[in-house]
Design a protein around this nucleic acid. Structure first.
Length: 266
DNA sequence: ATGGTCGCCGAGCGA
């Protein structure tokens, strides 16, 4: 089963490029982030027509996540638990950033798609929200781990795990994506027993999943690696491969992110 | 270099 995570930065702007990519790359499952659409505005029927079932968790204008799958989806869940009611919008669940479903292949796999808050500037209420959100994600991961079944948490984590994951680490020193506090929160997630698929495959630096639209970042290869797959032990046992589809960034009208893939023996 | 470029929509925010 081949699964890709892809922050598309707006479904309306990316419908054509995303369709072309789906037809040629033929992923079994895709986790989309930043659909920037309400559920009713997402062109689900269009993707049904090319063989994908669609589940969305959207909101107007910003954020929004979706799952596209060639296999049936069951037990869809939207949003994280832990309704603090103290978020900067009055409720931490005001932002649509998380969706879960079970993909019914040969071996059913629980798939979590997430768009972790950016958190800039730091410090700020936005940064506090990011850290709280990571706590809530960790609580959900701990719940799922108790089941001792295969699950994957895939998405735009907005975390540069190590300096090796940035072309210019010094430029991100004070950024919410790379601050020691952010990296520590990411490590706490991993230390529950999750495997970061890309780093499990290679320790090599210089692999990125995002290049800013500004300042010719793509042409200068000034990228960062912030889109990740975290696997439960039972899912890690199924991991065949993990790779970044860098070429997509050079296409016409691209997203600023590219797809990151895992292949599971499932 | 305190700008630069996108996408949401239809002003200004978020990244």
């Amino acid at each position: 089963m081949r699964i890709a995570t892809f922050n598309i930065n707006g479904i309306k702007a990316r419908i054509e490029g995303l369709t072309d990519w789906l037809k040629e790359a033929e992923p079994d499952v895709v986790l989309l982030q930043e659909i920037k659409s309400v559920d009713e505005g997402f062109p689900a029927e269009h993707f049904n027509d090319i063989g994908y079932v669609v589940e969305t968790h959207g909101q107007k204008g910003f954020n929004g996540v979706a799952i596209l799958s060639r296999l049936p989806l069951e037990d869809v869940r939207r949003g994280l638990d832990g309704h603090e009611g103290t978020g900067r919008d009055g409720a931490d669940d005001a932002e649509a950033r998380y969706i879960e479903a079970t993909v019914m292949g040969e071996k059913p796999i629980r798939i979590c798609g997430l768009y972790l808050p950016n958190g800039n500037p730091a410090p700020s209420d936005k940064y506090d929200y990011k850290l709280r959100w990571m706590d809530r994600l960790r609580a959900r991961a701990a719940e799922l781990l108790e089941l001792e079944e295969p699950f994957v948490m895939c998405g735009d984590y907005n975390i540069i795990p190590q300096d090796e994951d940035a072309a210019k680490p010094e430029a991100w020193k004070d950024d919410a994506l790379a601050l020691p506090t952010s990296r520590a929160a990411f490590r706490r997630l991993l230390s529950l027993g999750l495997t970061e698929a890309f780093r499990a495959r290679t320790q090599a630096p210089g692999h990125y999943s995002f290049w800013d639209y500004q300042a010719n970042s793509w042409e200068r290869n000034n990228g960062i690696r912030i889109d990740h797959h975290l696997l439960s032990p039972q899912a890690a046992d199924l991991l065949q491969d993990c790779w970044i589809e860098k070429e997509v960034r050079g296409r016409a009208k691209p997203s600023d992110h590219v797809p990151v893939w895992i292949d599971l023996a499932a």
